[in-house]
Write a protein that binds this DNA or RNA. Structure first.
Length: 338
DNA sequence: AATATCACCAACCGCGCACTC
DNA sequence: CGAGTGCGCGGTTGGTGATAT
């Protein structure tokens, strides 16, 4: 591989005469010993100081992907593979985020593993499912709706901690998402059911918390009101409504109830784009949300839509989830990266 | 045995973000 | 506020070894 590439040097290293291609054992030794003494960083000046005829970025890449002492060598285990598949469903091609959850594995390694092994396998599975769904929809004459064409959802990719405005029934709710990914990760996205969510430990745990708080204070301290207000609000469906619409939609949309997803015009995995995200792309700035009126603010406050103890309220997350899934006619109005 | 094709993966490169001046 | 710089991310390239013809 050495000396084969002929394109121009990269932006950071304009100098001619830099070595390219595969690293020799001696170069590895020089780089490792230099970093062991001086630490990582300042990659641009590293080659000069270490005496390597390499681009700084090449040194960085070699260290991060190969020479670091905490790199895990060997084949990807079955558990790791499962995790990669689940994380990829949630995060897409965000390899560094995926690698962050696999200790000792690099983004490059996971990306290569995905491209050479998993993508083909997953493509096969996806095609099979798509063929089945398309067949069912054609049978029922249901038009395909793509999320990209859904005017009610303004998609944005934001950082892990976001403020979100959710418009339901003409009222604006705000909320902050803090690392909800663990909850999402515990959900099998292919088999997601809203009833599963309502029965989930996440949801039940929150209800238990409210109950415990209620018991501890000997009655209604306002927390209980948050939940009852949320479910009692005209914009919010009751548990029964959700179950009913879910069942009806299953009957309406799908022949086979095993793969039924009522009004699910896009995949639940998209939810993760909102929760584990990056800044919105430059070409699509987030739409500024109107400042909530004082009445809206009171409502939002009473339902716990604004941050409570640093986490979004369960009610807010449910509303967001249900809106994304199309169970309730809300609009994800804007997502503001902090 | 020779050649073609495929699979793997280290390395490269362009782009964009964050930070500093 | 804009330019310059450093760095990280993700897509792509191409060398190498394995396998098929």
């Amino acid at each position: 591989m050495a000396g084969v590439k002929t394109k121009g040097a990269c932006r950071c290293c304009p100098k001619e005469g830099l070595k390219r291609g595969a690293w020799s054992a001696q170069e590895d030794r020089i780089l490792t010993s230099y970093i062991n003494i001086h630490g990582e960083g300042k990659w641009r000046e590293l080659p000069l100081k270490a005496g390597l005829r390499r681009c700084g970025r090449s040194c960085r890449l070699r260290w991060l992907n190969y020479l670091r002492p905490d790199i895990k060598r060997g084949n990807i285990s079955k558990d790791e593979e499962d995790l990669i598949i689940r994380l990829h469903k949630l995060l897409g091609n965000r390899w560094s985020l995926i690698a962050g959850r696999l200790p000792g594995r690099t983004d490059n390694e996971i990306k290569n593993y995905w491209n050479t092994n998993l993508s083909k396998r997953m493509k096969g599975i996806t095609k099979k499912i798509q063929r089945k769904k398309l067949k069912n929809k054609k049978l029922k004459g249901i038009p395909e709706v793509k999320v990209e064409n859904n005017p009610h959802i303004i998609q944005a990719r934001a950082t892990q901690c976001n403020n979100i405005e959710l418009v339901l029934g003409g009222e604006s709710w705000g909320g902050r998402i803090n690392d909800s990914s663990d909850f999402i990760l515990d959900t099998d996205l292919d088999e997601f059911r809203i009833s599963d969510f309502l029965d989930s430990d996440f949801f039940q745990g929150h209800c238990d918390e409210i109950q415990a708080a209620n018991n501890a204070t000997g009655g209604d301290d306002g927390i209980n009101n948050n939940l009852s207000c949320c479910f009692g609000h005209p914009s919010f469906p009751t548990h029964e409504t959700i179950e009913k619409s879910s069942s009806e939609a299953m009957l309406e949309n799908e022949v086979d109830s095993d793969s039924a997803q009522p009004n699910l015009t896009w995949e639940v995995s998209r939810l993760c784009s909102f929760l584990e995200t990056e800044k919105p792309p430059n070409d699509r700035e987030p739409v500024p949300a109107p400042a909530p009126s004082s009445i809206d603010r009171d409502l939002a406050s009473s339902i716990g839509a604004f941050p409570r103890n640093g986490y979004c309220s369960c009610e807010f997350l449910i509303c967001l989830l249900l809106t994304l899934l199309g169970y309730i006619p809300g609009i994800i109005y804007a997502i503001h990266a902090i």
